[in-house]
Write a protein that binds this DNA or RNA. Structure first.
Length: 554
RNA sequence: GCGCCCGUAGCUCAGUUGGAUAGAGCGCCGGACUUCGAAUCCGUAGGCCGCAGGUUCGAAUCCUGCCGGGCGUACCA
């Protein structure tokens, strides 16, 4: 609709130029947008204002001229007005809106899809929590955002792969092994001090007990490093299995699980360091090797090989992201907790250093989740072993509520997640508000079938009778959905879908309370059924992008 | 100190990449089920968009400087 209006304006401007009523044929970028109030019509164009400089004419005068040459035979446009500094307001023929439900029913599950991704290969990497403990709520938000972004991009014509990066190498894994080993020794009756830098959660004791069952007291007599390594391996494998299961319970699956250790085994870490060295991007200082990230805008250079000869996490991360590009991705999206934001600049530097453009690499920094219960903060710290796991949250509030609520804010904004609120199946909970629309329409539809009315039989006469303000308002909203999806894909912001769905739900509920769908006039009833069935499609498609179910009954 | 992010209704937040008179939800108060599902709806009230400048036809949005908050600032990950 917008696009059509835009084209009409361009044609009118060119015609006016040919007739000598405009001074220039150049058309500067301008926009056609939905208006905020009905008084301004349905759409407004700022063409005249942006054109003023090149036409050297007053905006209102330009608007007048364009309108004079506007030509659509009254099919689309009922009326135009010039307003304010030079807006051209368009009032659409009510009947022109009636094509929208058809478009929706035809596209059905594809309504809202687009090809703006031009089939580019994108990888979304998210969660990637260290296998040192179960997932907690913060990971849940990252998971919800990452999965939804992947859905939205894929719906928008990108070829998307989802990946989980397993940090199965390095210090934290060693700490995990040590923690488990110490608990194991304790369970074998050996007294020991449990250091502060080890993981204290009960799950560590469980892991130790399991190893005790499997290995007996054998580990008390082997070399400590060997025992720790064994504990680390077994514990990490166990934890990863748990993480997979938690994610599955959250409705999330990955296309690929990528091991950090594999980058060392295949020699890729050394290879990229060698390459950077050849390019003169690596130098030695204070006994360590530094990567000159400042050459790419970072604030200071970063160590890649420590004095003790071990590589840093950063080194394997460089290799990892290079490997992603080598796998053929045009674009990489990483979803991180916002506490890692200091890491962006250096990783972007490495992307550029390995010959890729910095805008091929995007980081979504998801802000912190404050877990509350009845408004009171719930204390959490992984180290101290005090946290509420994602699994506990899902068990308590349900998958749909958790996923939806995680997406009710821009990822950039901290999120208060109240367990009691999330559980409420009544007033305050927006999930059910939206899902209720779907269930309600399903219910009306089944009743209609009993009355012998068909849901998707298009009746021309009936559809043209959808003329109430509420009906046009719904149609206008439905028409906007594809644009909302595209916008949300461009900005990687799923919350736009969430807000859209809440608005659509509100508009539908309001309509429902004001107008009866199954009226005696069968033709009108069919028209209204056709419309609300379109609403049902859009609700379902939107919820699917968020990873939330659309129930027929609640 | 420096870097990134954020200051919008009493509270929690949106704001279509610079558009017209800044919007929702919650909360408060009052109403609507004999009718398609009341997990719903309807009605008011509430604002120097942190402050001060700048850019232009036009700023919550862009630039600069303050004030206030969060996070980061490792040869940890």
């Amino acid at each position: 609709m917008k696009h059509k209006i835009k084209t009409l304006i361009q044609l009118a401007a060119l015609k006016a130029y040919e007739q000598g009523e405009l001074r220039s044929s150049t058309i500067l970028p301008f926009s056609v947008e939905e208006t905020k109030t009905d008084a301004h019509g349905d759409f407004a164009a700022n063409f005249a204002m942006t054109a003023a400089s090149v036409q050297k004419m007053a905006p209102r005068k330009i608007a007048e001229t364009v309108i004079k040459y506007l030509d659509d035979n009254g099919v689309l446009i009922a009326k135009t007005e010039i307003a304010g500094p030079g807006f051209i307001n368009f009032f659409i023929q009510p009947t022109a809106w009636h094509s929208i439900p058809d478009i929706i029913h035809t596209a059905d599950r594809q309504y809202g899809a687009s090809d703006i991704g031009r089939n580019q290969k994108v990888q979304v990497e998210f969660v990637s929590a260290n296998p040192t403990g179960p997932l907690h709520v913060g990971h849940g938000r990252g998971a919800a955002v990452g999965d939804s972004v992947a859905n939205i991009l894929s719906f928008s014509g990108y070829q998307v792969e989802k990946e989980y990066y397993i940090n199965d190498s390095g210090r934290q894994i060693n700490t995990l092994g040590k923690s488990v080993f110490l608990r194991y020794l304790a369970s074998q009756g050996e007294k020991n001090d449990f250091p502060d830098d080890c993981y204290k959660g009960d799950y560590i004791k469980d892991l130790a007990a399991e190893i005790g069952l499997r290995e007996g007291d054998r580990l008390t007599s082997v070399e400590e490093q060997e025992a720790i390594a064994l504990c680390a391996r077994q514990a990490a494998a166990k934890i990863i299995a748990g993480i997979r299961q938690d994610l599955r319970a959250f409705g999330i699956s990955f296309d690929n699980w990528f091991s950090e250790q594999s980058l060392y085994d295949s020699g890729k870490v050394n290879a990229v360091l060698k390459d950077f060295r050849k390019k003169g991007l690596i130098y030695a200082k204070d006994g360590a090797l530094w990567f000159k990230t400042t050459a790419f805008g970072d604030e200071k250079d970063r160590v890649v090989v420590r004095k003790n000869g071990l590589t840093t996490y950063f080194a394997s991360d460089i290799a990892y992201h290079l490997d992603k590009f080598e796998r053929g991705f045009d674009r990489l999206i990483d979803v991180w907790g916002a506490d890692h934001h200091g890491y962006c600049a250096r990783l972007t530097a490495s992307v550029e250093a390995s010959g890729h453009k910095r805008d091929q690499f995007n980081v979504i920094l998801v802000k912190l989740v404050n877990l509350l219960r009845d408004g009171e903060p719930v204390a959490m710290s992984t180290r101290a072993g005090e946290f509420v796991t994602l699994q506990e949250v899902i068990n308590e509030v349900g998958q749909d509520a958790a996923r939806f609520l995680f997406l009710t804010r821009h990822y950039d904004s901290p999120l208060d997640f109240d367990l009691e609120l999330a559980k409420q199946q009544t007033n305050n909970n927006p999930v059910y508000y939206v899902q209720y629309v779907h269930a309600r329409i399903a219910s009306i539809a089944s009743k209609a079938r009993k009355l012998g009315l068909k849901l998707t039989d298009r009746d021309n006469l009936a559809i043209s009778r959808l003329t109430t303000g509420e009906e046009i308002r719904i149609i206008k909203l439905l028409a906007r959905f594809p644009e909302v999806v595209q916008h949300s894909a461009e900005t990687m912001a799923p919350h736009r879908i969430t807000f859209y769905l809440m608005e659509l739900a509100a508009t539908f509920h309001s309509y429902y309370n004001k107008h009866r769908v199954l009226v005696d006039d069968a033709a009108l009833a069919c028209g209204r059924l056709y419309l609300i069935a379109a609403v049902k499609i859009v609700i379902r498609n939107g919820l699917a992008l968020l990873g939330v179910s659309a129930p027929e009954r609640m």
